[in-house]
Design a protein around this nucleic acid. Sequence first.
DNA 1: GAAACCAGTGTAAACGTTTACAAAGTGAAT
DNA 2: ATTCACTTTGTAAACGTTTACACTGGTTTC
Lengths: 341, 341
Amino acid sequence: MSDVSIKEVARLAGVSIATVSRCVNNPEKVTEKTRLKVQQAILDTGYSPNTLAQSFRRGRTNLVMVVLPSVGDPFFTDVMRGIRTAAKAKGYSIVIEETQLNTMTADEIGAMLVSKQMDGILLLASMSPFGTEILSATSNRKLPIVIGCETVSPELSEFSSVHIDNVSAAMEATNYLITSGHERIGMIYGQEKSLLTKDREDGYRAAMRESNLPIQEGWVAAGELSLAGARKAVRQLLNHEQRPTAIFCANDEMAIGALHEVKSSGLNVPEDISIIGFDDIRYAEIVDPPLTTISQPAEEIGERAMYRLCREIEDGMGGDSITEIVPHKLVIRRSVAAPSG
Amino acid sequence: MSDVSIKEVARLAGVSIATVSRCVNNPEKVTEKTRLKVQQAILDTGYSPNTLAQSFRRGRTNLVMVVLPSVGDPFFTDVMRGIRTAAKAKGYSIVIEETQLNTMTADEIGAMLVSKQMDGILLLASMSPFGTEILSATSNRKLPIVIGCETVSPELSEFSSVHIDNVSAAMEATNYLITSGHERIGMIYGQEKSLLTKDREDGYRAAMRESNLPIQEGWVAAGELSLAGARKAVRQLLNHEQRPTAIFCANDEMAIGALHEVKSSGLNVPEDISIIGFDDIRYAEIVDPPLTTISQPAEEIGERAMYRLCREIEDGMGGDSITEIVPHKLVIRRSVAAPSG
DNA sequence: GAAACCAGTGTAAACGTTTACAAAGTGAAT
DNA sequence: ATTCACTTTGTAAACGTTTACACTGGTTTC
């Protein structure tokens, strides 16, 4: 099966291989009569074009690389679902690279990028060590790149992007804690280099400043975007001599870790400590208490970003870069209450 | 960049393209002197072989397709991590297909399989509609396939597989409920066709039979492997006039959904209803109460299965099929207690 | 010193497509 | 009837590799 080539079909239909190729790719350029003949021959032989040869000839792989911190995070899983939907519709396959795995050196990344002939890159973690490498490795080549989930930093403004307004959303989350009566508010961000959590930290700081609330040294800690990292960060926050009465976590995965750690240490949520998250992953309403959080349209972000990337691949890189901002919203559940003290 | 071909290198080094190719692929077949010349030329030009041309020429893509129910399930995320580790080590990229998306017809699946030239398939859901299609579509071609996570059904014994002993593990889980004092035990399985949850159901039934405990009509329901599906299934179980005092769930995702639904309906876990899960995903110890469950070495399963597949791709399909059974273990937390009634 | 061998290198074909160009066929306009 | 315009088809080159085979020159063997 499938080891029949275009030649065989041509022989059977009594036409040239060029005609067969045209029947498959530009049917309108061929007579009804020959088209039928060829189609019959294709059916008879079970021919399907050799994608390897096609890719080679056309110089296109229909492969897109998606770079993200971790596929394990349910938020990114949802984004991926959107990406996959769009990719399927447009005939692309996707290859995933996780930055959190951290298994590659800068050299390997560069090597991989030139060797694997990807048609484009969807970057959901532009400022990770991985992401910056990619950007520099591709800066001289003309490889379409779209940035998703994160605001693009100014020096990357040449690229299109799809994301919510992370700064505003973080301010909204923080302000919700403030209007609930909290004054001592801590934050758990993700990784030093990540633009995504940097924006959320900026939003948090801006909201605190606006309300003239101080942020004490030690109220802000890194949670590594993981359950375990957040638990460690929470222990640091709780050990502070003046501990916060509320914590804003830069994503739900960390919020859930934080929630668990607070409860393990004998305190109650939200009575003793309020927690607010970010992303609204599917576990957010399952944990106890259900998590108040910022919801963002993960699947839609993925889908739009992928469609955008497809366009840039197909239209060439001439067009202007476009920034699509999608809406977020605050989802109020039960992990935030007025401070008790 | 990267648009330099082997010709350019050959010209610069003053050798034929054949020699350049040999320097890259079979350095031992070439004089030290010419090798150095060529290597210098490669450095100067920034040459790297065109993978498209290589794939085409060699008839290999170094692409492997992984088929699984859902990447969103943290268990499969862990399996994927192992797969990715192995794939990276062996120079393969992976392409994921989710069966739960259910977006493809049988025809499309067949078409995709012949068109995308995958080097092999890692099947983590052999009996899904998708899986069976794949097996039949590839039965005449000689495409290496390895089955992971599931026991292979007898008619598939020609394929290698890597998995735990699902039946024994399910018996162990059920017996733990029984020795805790439960007699009315329900079960939530995944999907009708899934071998994986079928085995677990078999184990559950076997354990009940061994202890001479009846299984009432309506105590066993499908949970679709999802949070939402499990919640629906639990409602059915709770409506039974003689409702179970314990529920065995075929995976943790469903167990967590079940736990949440039981709590929402005003009952307590484990006081009123005990719940035991399967997989030990990272959220299992985070939920309230922490979930008693069967732990399986997800990452190891993925890694081993991928290495196995690589071997079969590289050695050709001559060798015998090998079944690797990896160990599971019961993890006791707090979602199971003696029945109150 | 010729024959035989060998390692290193070059030549050219092959892989299965797509596509520019040429050729042939069709019909309309002169 | 001849030319012209246009459509349909065929011919052949091209894409960048790998590799079977042929060639070269040098070394060994008799």
